[in-house]
Deep mutational scan, measured.
Amino acid sequence: MQRVNMIMAESPGLITICLLGYLLSAECTVFLDHENANKILNRPKRYNSGKLEEFVQGNLERECMEEKCSFEEAREVFENTERTTEFWKQYVDGDQCESNPCLNGGSCKDDINSYECWCPFGFEGKNCELDVTCNIKNGRCEQFCKNSADNKVVCSCTEGYRLAENQKSCEPAVPFPCGRVSVSQTSKLTRAETVFPDVDYVNSTEAETILDNITQSTQSFNDFTRVVGGEDAKPGQFPWQVVLNGKVDAFCGGSIVNEKWIVTAAHCVETGVKITVVAGEHNIEETEHTEQKRNVIRIIPHHNYNAAINKYNHDIALLELDEPLVLNSYVTPICIADKEYTNIFLKFGSGYVSGWGRVFHKGRSALVLQYLRVPLVDRATCLRSTKFTIYNNMFCAGFHEGGRDSCQGDSGGPHVTEVEGTSFLTGIISWGEECAMKGKYGIYTKVSRYVNWIKEKTKLT
């Protein structure tokens, strides 16, 4: 034993070699072989497995989906700052455009905790909710729209109204504003409101030439003092309507412009014939205590009207009353817009006519005020429907199939267009061939041609 100890002390290297040989010859039971080890760690190889990531292109799944990435790591994937920024906006807080917040056709661009709407022409605001041009839906104005110097929408209202708090709607500024039905039992019968379409306001006024200088022999019209197929109006439903009495009662109609003036057809009036105007009328054979009678003290036909040349060209006249009318729910003026808007309103496509005229061709006159909704007829169809001249200051309205029309005794009465609950004068009943005849239409004086003249002559002093 002493000898062994001496050998170990003198030859430590020998001992180490012996131990190493023993270990190498022993069977290893701690580690699995290569094949079995792979069965336990069965993990798919990654895209760049075996390579240094710093030297390969980034992978979106590896960089940002398996674990949260930084902007720089995302930049490695896209290799483009702009594309990385677009991805980053949604990656950080989701897609803010998912709810489609942009209105009126706006395009949404996502941002971090926010979004941006790219608005089409005519709109602005956070969600493109603000109209900035009158060309689109009248700028959301209830009545009139004008573009300011910086191309912003400025709404306005006709006389007797003021802008509401929203700067879009119009509200009454006087007790009985024009064009409004205020009798409670008839307010439910107000005709369907007309909503502004998209309009090209630059070209809204037709490029028409008034044929002022045409000389033409007097034409022989049949029954051209021209509501057939209409309905009984309720008291106060058309408070701007008046009836004219002269040699015979209810020979023509008219509309209240203001307390002192009536507008009617020029062919209705004769110099030297006494005319009485009755406002607030409903049943011409009954006294309903809503009527107001006034005498006409002055007749002003349009300066281009000449019955000797043509009885229905420039067929418009103004009547001055001896005493002002007292405005109330049964006696209310009709609204008159400017030339541009009167023309736009007419193009809405349908209007209402009213009167006490004959209820059928050569038949009896109506006792109760009649009204009828009539569609506008395109000019080409209008011209083809008659052998008589249709001037540019006239328009056609009615039904091709016949059966409904204005008729004798309705002449001078109103053709009105309702705009968001307020009625505007767009025409004056003038003439036609018979009444409600198939293929024939009622012919009306186009008020847009005469609004400046009306307003100039009827100013209240």
Score class of each variant (00 low, 15 high):
Q2G: 14
M6C: 12
I7P: 11
P12H: 10
P12I: 14
I17W: 11
L20W: 10
L23A: 05
A26C: 14
A26T: 12
T29E: 13
L32H: 15
L32A: 15
D33K: 09
D33E: 07
H34G: 07
E35Y: 09
A37L: 09
K39Y: 05
L41D: 15
N42A: 11
G58L: 10
G58P: 15
R62Y: 06
R62L: 10
M65G: 05
E67R: 11
R75Q: 06
R75I: 10
V77T: 14
N80E: 06
N80V: 09
N80L: 04
E86Y: 06
D95K: 15
C97K: 01
L103A: 04
G105H: 07
G106Q: 00
G106R: 00
E116H: 02
E116V: 03
W118E: 02
P120N: 06
F121G: 04
F123M: 04
L130I: 14
N138H: 06
R140P: 07
S148W: 07
S148N: 12
N151Y: 10
N151A: 08
V153N: 06
C155A: 01
S156P: 01
T158G: 04
E159Q: 07
E159M: 07
E159S: 09
Q167C: 06
K168F: 15
C170G: 02
G179E: 01
G179P: 00
G179V: 00
G179R: 01
V181Y: 07
S187F: 13
A192W: 10
D200W: 10
Y201H: 10
S204D: 10
L211G: 11
D212A: 07
T215K: 08
Q216L: 12
S217M: 12
S220M: 07
N222G: 09
D223C: 05
D223L: 12
F224G: 11
R226P: 08
V227H: 06
V228T: 13
G230T: 14
E231W: 12
D232H: 11
K234N: 07
K234R: 13
F238H: 04
W240S: 00
L244G: 01
C252V: 01
C252M: 01
S255E: 02
I256C: 00
T264E: 01
H267P: 00
C268L: 01
V273T: 13
V277W: 00
G280D: 01
E286R: 10
E288W: 05
T290C: 05
R294N: 01
I297V: 10
A307K: 11
K311C: 03
E320D: 00
L325C: 01
L327N: 01
S329C: 04
S329Y: 06
S329Q: 06
T332D: 01
T342A: 06
G351V: 01
F360S: 14
G363I: 06
R364C: 04
S365Y: 11
R373A: 11
L376I: 12
L383Q: 15
T386R: 09
F395N: 00
G403K: 14
S406H: 11
C407E: 03
C407W: 11
S411H: 13
G413S: 14
T417N: 08
S423L: 09
T426D: 00
E434Q: 12
M437R: 10
K438P: 14
G439Q: 08
G439Y: 06
K440W: 03
G442W: 04
K446D: 07
S448K: 02
Y450W: 00
Y450D: 02
N452P: 12
K457P: 02
T461E: 12
